[in-house]
Nucleic acid binder design. Sequence first.
DNA 1: CAAAATCATTGACATTTATCAAGAGTCGTT
DNA 2: AACGACTCTTGATAAATGTCAATGATTTTG
Lengths: 189, 189
Amino acid sequence: MLEVLQEHIIKRLGKVPERFEEVAKAFEPLRLKRGTYLLKEGEVCKYVYFIVGGCLQVFVIDKNGSESIREFYTEEQWVTDIFGFKNQQPSDEYIKCVEPCKLLRIHYDAFQHFSAEVPAFAQIYQQILELSYSNTVYRVNTLTSLDALDRIKWLMENKPKLMTRLSSKLIASYLGISPETMTRLKGKL
Amino acid sequence: MLEVLQEHIIKRLGKVPERFEEVAKAFEPLRLKRGTYLLKEGEVCKYVYFIVGGCLQVFVIDKNGSESIREFYTEEQWVTDIFGFKNQQPSDEYIKCVEPCKLLRIHYDAFQHFSAEVPAFAQIYQQILELSYSNTVYRVNTLTSLDALDRIKWLMENKPKLMTRLSSKLIASYLGISPETMTRLKGKL
DNA sequence: CAAAATCATTGACATTTATCAAGAGTCGTT
DNA sequence: AACGACTCTTGATAAATGTCAATGATTTTG
């Protein structure tokens, strides 16, 4: 699985990173079944995960007990609870496998170490941060400025692969609407 | 105004940063009237702004022509359109003064230069990024998992100063509800 | 300081979206 | 292949929120 990570890094950095072997050793491969939790509310997130294959959902549980999905993550993306991870504090969020997943995880201690010691590592991290932040900003804007139908259209145009890959129920949760409304609005397209 | 910036940096870094004088020279002070735009949709954001005094709103305009506020920024915070700034691409967002503002701005070229050359600068930037990202993640979760009344309660508990400082209309836009609903729900508290 | 503009509030009503329930279909697991 | 669990769809209804309009209060600005 490390080849996938190396490819990803080369793509981001535009070159083979210095000290890759050394950093790569800190990543532990994982194969997980659909439905496995990587993190639950109240737990401290000790890892950053790189996705080699599969799909994960990050979500919170509302007062009625239903999942409200903040984001999906797929191949060649990085997942963690950033605030909880950085401060080693309990999380508000859950992270769960939507599909069987192949992951590489790096522990907090190693992450901190390489952030400080390996410039290429810090650089990649910053790129991921900027991209994640940009995406999340965009997501806030779609949630507040678009109605349900336009959010569906937006997703179809901007993340068509998610639409086909995931169940309607999950997509509905991601868009902040009920499954029934999702069904009905799809008929209006 | 540079003292405020210096204080801010000392607070974040826990020490007086190396080469502060040099970096400080790159910041240009601005005094702006309420209602002034720093950025409009379609423009390329050339600056990062540090707020010495006042309040700004970042927003998009929906298909009905009304403002949908993504975030407010006040004293000792940093504002920019991160994605557009980093890639020097046209923005989707507007940035506008809600109050008369005292700002310090740094140009893209200087920003890039110091990011690469001054570790303390890069470090502060990364801290701001992490914090901004965390906040935005939190905001997505409140928008999708809470109903209008609970979003109001959330804001009162977590950002009480904004509630008193800004008009109901602006708060309503930030919470994704109409001013009328805002009035009515406030009666239910 | 006064006119003009904007804002907050209220009522009546429309629209959107959620909820509950039931049946048909699909999928995953054994 | 068959069972069970989950998912999708549809209908009926309820709840939440938006829109429009009018009025008085507040704020801004010349």
